[in-house]
Design a protein around this nucleic acid. Sequence first.
DNA 1: GTACCGCTGAACAGATTGTCCAGCGGAAAA
DNA 2: TTTTCCGCTGGACAATCTGTTCAGCGGTAC
Lengths: 164, 164
Amino acid sequence: MAIDHLDGRIIVLLAREPRIGVLEMSRRLGVARGTVQARLDRLQSNGVIRGFGPEVDPAAIGYPVTAFATLQIRQGQGPDVRAHLATVPEVLELHTTTGSGDMLCRLVARSNADLQRVIDRVVGFEGIVRASTAIVMENAVPLRIIPLVEQAASEGAEARPRLG
Amino acid sequence: MAIDHLDGRIIVLLAREPRIGVLEMSRRLGVARGTVQARLDRLQSNGVIRGFGPEVDPAAIGYPVTAFATLQIRQGQGPDVRAHLATVPEVLELHTTTGSGDMLCRLVARSNADLQRVIDRVVGFEGIVRASTAIVMENAVPLRIIPLVEQAASEGAEARPRLG
DNA sequence: GTACCGCTGAACAGATTGTCCAGCGGAAAA
DNA sequence: TTTTCCGCTGGACAATCTGTTCAGCGGTAC
């Protein structure tokens, strides 16, 4: 699956002004409304656009502290640890990474003190051997996708891509 | 800023069915449309809901490999490194963390081989002393916010919160 | 007791959506 | 070379939703 220039412009425009409608997009992009609508449908069914869920700021709902924890997992305990961490609301994200039995998870907490509680809950599970935590001081580059989309779009076909 | 139960239900509903409209939400939640509209406006102006940007799957546009890199930064080079990394499209996220001169960044690449190119570009900067990379094998828990919202909502006022 | 404030239920015009359609034109296939 | 395919265009339609405003109700705070 690749995206072409128009797809890229649609995604970027949508990222910059999410409340925009299909009609307004077609006006801005200089193409027919049906085209934008068809492209959007395709992007979604292709899985390029997963959804339009609201981006909630953890800090704004009382969880201003973010941290990343590297977990060392006991052999074969991966699935159990995963299930355990999935039950902790403060675990926003969890990845299994290279390195024998390592995981990386993103945590949030109400305060630095509260982070201790969260970590205790996270590591309070037999399958976890060791945990090392790094507290985020500044989010220098917030999660972004636009630059990558632009790069992917410029490398794709100029127009009228072969569809999957 | 705290959110109450209704705020939580609005966010959760929105997260599950993003294409839903204000009118349909008011029907599902059993409240007046004006109420939902006012709540949403407030949630957005309070920064609780940052936006509704499209969630783009890097894998779907040709970047199936994700990795996390821990960077050790030379004293005082933080701002320069940040600016440097901001120019790399494959850097999706960058955090400054505790530990003298440490940063954590999320990378994507077209393949494991391509990851080498990305890393070379990332570390090819004088301010970076050392980099250690962990390749993501499985995204056990995709970035989520609903459990946290539900927790925050249940701890908040039952209804009619004091507004900021 | 009074003022404040959020919620309700309603109304309105305006805009947008989903969904059709026929026609055009480039590219691939025959 | 000719035919077929397919995306894009520009238009149309009814149905729906949006933004906005209004008066009234009922708690809570002062």
